[in-house]
Design a protein around this nucleic acid. Structure first.
Length: 821
RNA sequence: GCGGAAGUGGCGGAAUUGGUAGACGCGCUGGACUUAGGAUCCAGUGGAGCAAUCCGUGGGGGUUCGAGUCCCCCCUUUCGCACCA
């Protein structure tokens, strides 16, 4: 027990006891159902969603609380503005985090997860969130993942799920396949082990089919620009052309062609060689027998080379196949090389080498002494200007050494060459996307089993909807091994089942699905939690979705947000949803650092919300989190600074205790009050919480100025203004002051009315500049005209000193500023 | 390398459209109350100067009556992506 509270605690002697008030209101909210939303009866529904947390064993992180508080403030504000706000919260409890942690501590995830969830729930309730806990969910609940499996079947039925033997990323430490997204810089995102390649049979979703729509829709949704940019880059549209280079098969001698993809078709006259990826299926056909050994050795080497070296090394390696192709533009013979700087996964797995105008090709050509030709000139260059590096800038480029293209600009040349070659069937304009299909198979235990059965007679058979969920069995040995299959594959008693179609003994799919599939549809589930006959109720979905406001971390800017958009589109196309974009508005919150450094366990600077709430109260802590920096940028958490927000709440508390209803409110104070009502509302609406708090503090300073007793009318609206930030204290003060009867909540009382007439200033401080420098401020009527303003300014002694004779120019900004030149 | 964001007092940060730079808070200084205060309250607080005034938003140019804000060049930090043709 910490007994320093009486002697050392700087909060000792402050005027209100947050512990008692917060416990009281958390109890009353529960008893009165204050935070319960009437989903059926709502007339002005507003869905305020935050990304659900992964319930870690360490408990709630202050970063979670920062994020959730921001959403809560927005939700509470919308409620005060008259909406029926639904603010649900659940848990993203499946996945590799939980499983790895369970392995580490030697406990079973089925035992750990409920415990972690209970701890999260306790912490979240202490934070005073307006969450309707009747509609919580956990992705690990069979009632939930039943429908995750159902979604898999929807994709399968629409031909959007398929199996493919594919080279996948394999983490030798986690002993599992990783999605491309989980490979960061060639190493496993989680354990930093270099990733290897393995070939396994996997389930994929055809998200790449949706690339054009996923991209196009971004233009019409209200999301943070940064997030949209990240998605655009990830989808990676590039418009270019596919060009065919005639060649000869080295073995049979028959004619064939190599197709390359390029975004710079204009530079084809500068293509002095071709390169194909080592994995390219045509490599063998082009390799002359004299070169066969060398080429094979090179292919073997790159296959073995781990992905890190291959992706990070900029050194150019490669071998000549001994064969030549014909450049369709120059009709010259150019050599065909094999090199690992060309990737099989992108484009056609083959490129034309244009060393004059591509940095990588320049390096390669320099290394292997291949000819370098200039075909584009900048402003002060001509066809003969030597190239010391690749000239890649094409903005002001003019074509040279390019036959029919000479003199054209780069863009015109791109179109023209495709037209010319297309006549011979050697070119077509194409659009490529970087986005590749989504591999959802995981050779792991802690996830929803993929609802598929493999039957010797019937093949791949889906588990009928009536048999869902395929329940994840409790198994003791859930540790993955390097067999390339899930731990479930060790449990014959589970995977041996009769085929749903023919009844013969068959085998279940033993892989589970990706956690991102769990989180790709959870927002659809919340309003329908408790319904076991449908994934989501038609009418409730119509009423509540799409999500009105979604808030979350930008680390999910690409994957989660893209996957949930995709799943929503698929369900829309299948007729299950009316809309195709899940989140009408999305804003990314920032992240919190501490004392200028990243919070981490090893540094021991992690903020445990429990301790801070204990010491300062949830209200002061919430307010501080929102005050420490711009919500969308995050900020720096400093222990010392919390006292400021606590003092602010104490002063409000004290003012309410001291206020009087005698006499009239002060007009200046009331003017400031109405300005504050407007500013706080505007600021909350644009998530500028730090300035909203600052505005309230400023008002409190005005209110308390001088030795006067504040008037009731000056104080009461502050209770509502502060309520989204400090909900417990607001309720307490609301009750104390008799707001809306005995059982009313401040959150049902509406946002204080803003009166523009009361907020308007009659007089303003006009800034007077002379030659652009501020020389004086004069107090003048708000709507003063230019001539009167000049007179007033010249009456000022300082201004008079600087202005001699007639001004050459007067700049007058009404209501703000006067500049005499 | 490419793409995004950002550089403002001792510190966290304000300045919504080119119009008083430093709101608000922390810290610090002085004072009041006090047996005491790391509580509370009051006052002050960008730098230089007795002052008038001058200098100040990473650095250097520019546009403008006026630039933290717009344009050009450079430096630094940070976060994504990374041989994507």
């Amino acid at each position: 027990m910490d007994n320093s509270a009486t002697s050392n605690d700087p909060t000792a002697g402050l005027t209100y006891d947050p512990g008692a008030i917060e416990r009281k209101w958390q109890r009353l909210w529960q008893e009165r159902g204050t935070n319960s939303t009437n989903l059926q009866g709502a007339t002005r529904p507003f869905y305020a969603l935050m990304m659900f947390p992964y319930p870690s064993a360490e408990g709630l992180h202050v970063g979670n609380l920062f994020a959730f508080t921001g959403n809560d403030i927005y939700g509470r504000f919308q409620r005060l503005a008259g909406h029926n706000v639904f603010e649900p919260l659940g848990y993203d409890a499946f996945g590799i985090h939980s499983e790895n942690y369970a392995l580490k501590v030697g406990k079973h995830p089925m035992e750990l997860i409920p415990r972690n969830i209970a701890n999260f729930r306790r912490q979240l309730e202490r934070a005073g969130l307006m969450v309707d806990w009747r509609y919580t969910l956990a992705t690990t609940d069979p009632d939930y993942y039943k429908w995750t499996q159902w979604i898999f079947l929807q994709l399968l039925n629409q031909g959007l799920a398929y199996r493919k033997q594919a080279a996948v990323n394999w983490c030798p430490n986690c002993k599992t396949v990783l999605a491309n997204e989980q490979v960061v810089g060639g190493v496993c995102e989680r354990c930093k082990t270099p990733v290897e390649q393995r070939s396994l049979e996997q389930w994929f979703f055809r998200i790449s089919d949706y690339a054009p729509r996923l991209l196009a829709n971004l233009d019409r949704i209200d999301w943070s620009e940064t997030t949209k940019t990240a998605q655009r880059n990830w989808i990676g549209k590039s418009e270019g052309a596919e060009l065919a280079f005639p060649a000869t098969d080295a073995g049979s001698g028959s004619a064939c062609e190599i197709r390359v993809f390029t975004t710079r078709a204009d530079t084809i006259f500068g293509a002095t060689y071709l390169v194909v990826a080592p994995e390219h299926p045509l490599v063998e056909s082009f390799t002359q027998s004299a070169e066969r050994k060398k080429v094979e050795a090179y292919r073997e080497r790159t296959k073995k080379q781990d992905i890190v070296t291959r992706k990070t090394s900029t050194e150019k390696t490669g071998v000549f196949t001994g064969s030549y192709a014909i450049n369709p533009a120059t009709e010259k013979r150019i050599p065909i090389w094999v090199a690992d700087y060309v990737l099989m996964e992108y484009g056609t797995g083959a490129i034309m080498g244009v060393p004059g105008h591509d940095a990588r090709d320049f390096e390669f050509a320099t290394e292997f002494r291949l000819p370098i030709v200039r075909v584009v000139c900048g402003e002060r260059e001509d066809a003969a200007t030597p190239l010391t590096a690749a000239h890649t800038d094409c903005d002001l480029g003019t074509m040279v050494n390019s036959g029919p293209l000479d003199g054209l600009g780069v863009d015109a040349a791109k179109r023209r060459i495709v037209e010319i070659l297309a006549e011979r069937g050697a070119a077509k304009a194409v659009v490529r996307y970087r986005l590749h299909d989504w591999c959802i198979s995981r050779q792991r235990y802690w996830g929803p089993p993929i609802p598929i059965v493999y039957c010797d007679s019937c093949g791949v058979v889906q588990v009928p909807e009536k048999d869902l969920p395929v329940v994840l069995p409790f198994v003791e040995d859930f540790k993955p091994d390097d067999s390339g299959v899930s731990p479930l594959a060790r449990h014959e008693e589970w995977y041996r089942v009769p085929c749903p179609e023919c009844g013969q003994m068959a085998r279940r799919e033993t892989d589970v699905s990706d956690t991102f599939l769990d989180s790709a549809w959870y927002f659809l589930r919340y309003p329908s939690v408790g319904r076991n006959d449908v994934p989501f109720d038609k009418n409730l979905t119509l009423k509540w979705l799409p999500v009105d406001s979604y808030i979350g971390g930008n680390e999910h800017a690409v994957l989660h947000l893209l996957y949930s958009r995709f799943i929503t589109m698929v369900l829309h196309d299948a007729g299950h949803l009316e809309f195709e974009e899940p989140y009408a508005r999305f804003r990314a919150h920032g992240h919190i650092i501490r004392d200028g450094a990243k919070m981490s366990k090893t540094q021991g600077n992690i903020v445990n919300p429990d301790e801070y709430i204990e010491r300062w109260g949830a209200d002061a802590f919430r307010t501080y989190l929102m005050f420490l920096g711009p919500y969308e940028q995050g900020g720096d958490f400093r222990d010392q600074s919390i006292s400021g927000t606590r003092r602010f709440l104490d002063r409000l508390f004290a003012s309410v205790q001291a206020m009087s209803s005698e006499g009239d409110p002060n007009a200046d104070v009331m003017r400031k009050l109405h300005q504050t009502i407007r500013k706080v509302g505007d600021d909350i609406a644009r998530l500028s919480y730090n300035t909203a708090v600052a505005a309230m503090m400023e008002y409190m300073n005005v209110l308390r100025k001088g030795e006067r007793t504040p008037h009731r009318d000056e104080v009461l609206p502050m209770i509502s203004l502060v309520s989204p930030f400090a909900p417990h204290l607001a309720e307490e003060l609301w009750q104390q002051t008799g707001g809306a009867g005995k059982n009313g909540s401040v959150f049902d009382a509406g946002w204080p009315a803003f009166d523009p007439a009361l907020a308007a200033e009659d007089f303003i401080e006009l800034v007077v500049q002379v030659n652009g420098r501020v020389r004086a401020k004069v107090r003048v009527p708000r709507d003063i005209g230019q001539d009167a303003a000049v007179d007033a300014a010249r009456a000022d002694p300082t201004v008079a000193r600087y202005v001699s004779g007639a001004p050459t120019k007067i700049v007058f900004v009404p209501g703000r500023l006067l500049n005499i030149v």
